[in-house]
């Protein structure tokens, strides 16, 4: 099943990535090549096989209901590209129409 340009654009929208026209065309071809590799799995009989998801059989790992160590706000915000007091600043979340 071949992926088309529109599919790539849709996936880019979900992944929050922007591509130039050229990149889109090139990536569509490339993605089809890689998907052909993935499609080899179609030949494997997996009827009745449980998916693995996690490799360890450990269960019930909990923490207690106590606060842990806290990062001081200045350290937590030290890498922020745009900070205002103890918050991160971004362009308006709700459009100001």
């Amino acid at each position: 099943m071949a992926v088309e340009r529109g599919d790539v654009e849709h996936v880019a929208m979900l992944a929050m990535l922007a591509f130039t026209e050229e990149e889109l065309v090139a990536f569509t071809t490339e993605m089809n090549g890689i998907l052909a590799l993935f499609e080899e799995l179609e030949g494997v009989d997996t009827d009745g096989v449980e998916p693995a998801f996690r490799v360890l059989r450990r269960r019930n790992v909990f923490r207690g209901d106590e606060p842990g160590e806290m990062l001081p706000p200045d350290e937590a915000l030290a890498n922020a590209p745009d900070r205002h007091e103890d918050a991160f600043r971004v362009p308006a979340v709700l459009p100001n129409d």
């Binding site: 449980e50 998916p51 693995a52």
Partner: peptide, 18 residues
Amino acid sequence: SAGYYDQYYLKAQRVRTL
């Protein structure tokens, strides 16, 4: 993504079990 999860992701996790 919707429509491909079973075909790709889930299938891969089953092959992982094998």
